[in-house]
Amino acid sequence: MAATSRTSPVIARSSLEADMPQRPKRLTPSRGPLDLFGSEVRRYRTMAGLSLAQLAEQIPYAPSTIGEIERGESGCDRGFAEDCDRVLDTRDALAHLHDGLFDGRSAVFPEYFAGWPEYESQSEVLRSYQTLLVDGLLQTASYAEVLLYGDQAKIQGRLERQGILTRDNPPPPRLVCLLPETVLWHRVGTGAIMHEQLLYLADAISPRLSIQIIPDGAPHPGHAGSFSIARLPGGELTAYCEGEPHGRIIEGRSVIERLNERFMDLSTYALSAEQSKALIWQTAEERWKS
């Protein structure tokens, strides 16, 4: 009996702790636009006295989605801000903030990637090595739709990134993209989607846009993962590397120099742009044409 009475308070405390709501993540708005926008959504929601579930009952978003946005872990489209403004009576404050922070673009990207499109848009030269998939700057809408599970806001964000390749002022960056031949074989969606994507790649090759294929079986040092390097006006370099659990933007000079050397090493194993174009066309017709 005595032993039971000593352990009961511990059990009771454990039960109470399990039932207590998890403390909200502390946000640091200065970290970036996603954190700032999320902190304002949370502030207006708590001022309105609504829980995540209660807000979700009045707008077409799940509580988990709203929570991710508030924590700065996910972007959103302007429609989310407008719905929150209506329910939380903010006098359009969130929609106005969304316009200022994202300009209809950055909110569709995850936090760890959100800054990279800005580097892309400022770049004079882009170098890209992709191990498994076509670079996002070169994806067709259908190919992107499969990868992004039909999320129209994210698809539109990806396609808008591609506008830097066709702009007039400033001139588009010079893009050099290296792809292992296996990327041409890796099915994304249907055969028709792959056929369209490969023909798009072949047609895109130009003096300012080079796509070079590393033939299957060629030994090369590119198995460590995908990466992109942007050279900005003035010669400054920055990079984006894929990784687990997610990618990251890199600005450390020594790391970027190693990535640049790896890219140069990889390029020595690649076919010329004209040879690559022929191989892409051949693969599209022989492997993916129905």
Rank of each mutant, 00 (worst) to 15 (best):
A3Y: 02
S14G: 13
L16G: 05
D19T: 07
D19V: 09
P29I: 03
S30F: 03
G32S: 03
P33G: 06
P33I: 08
L36C: 00
F37M: 12
F37G: 00
G38R: 07
V41Y: 00
R45Y: 15
M47Q: 15
G49F: 06
L55W: 13
L55N: 00
Y61V: 04
A62W: 03
G67M: 12
S74E: 00
S74R: 13
G75M: 11
R78A: 08
R78H: 06
A81M: 05
A81W: 01
R86G: 07
R91T: 03
D92G: 14
D92P: 10
A93M: 03
D99T: 12
D103I: 01
S106G: 07
A107R: 00
A107M: 15
Y112F: 10
G115R: 14
G115D: 12
G115F: 02
W116H: 04
W116V: 01
P117I: 04
S121P: 04
Q122V: 04
Q122W: 04
Q122D: 09
E124K: 11
E124T: 14
L126G: 02
R127N: 07
S128T: 11
Y129F: 15
D135G: 03
Q139T: 01
Q139A: 01
T140D: 01
S142D: 15
Y143M: 00
E145D: 07
Y149L: 05
A153P: 03
E160Q: 11
R161E: 11
Q162K: 12
I164S: 10
R167S: 05
D168T: 13
N169P: 03
P170E: 13
L175T: 08
L178K: 04
L179G: 01
P180V: 01
V183I: 10
R187P: 14
V188Y: 14
T190H: 01
T190R: 10
A192Q: 14
A192S: 12
I193W: 05
H195Y: 15
E196Q: 03
L198Q: 07
Y200N: 08
S206V: 08
L209Y: 14
I213Y: 10
I213F: 10
P215Y: 08
G217W: 11
P219I: 05
P219S: 12
S226D: 09
F227I: 04
S228E: 05
A230E: 01
P233V: 13
E236V: 07
A239P: 06
C241Y: 01
G243T: 02
P245C: 05
H246T: 02
R253Q: 11
I256A: 12
E257G: 05
L259E: 02
L259F: 05
N260D: 14
N260E: 13
R262K: 04
S267P: 01
S267D: 14
Y269Q: 14
L271C: 07
S272R: 10
E274P: 02
S276A: 08
A278K: 08
I280A: 03
T283L: 07
A284E: 08
E285H: 12
E286Q: 15
S290A: 04
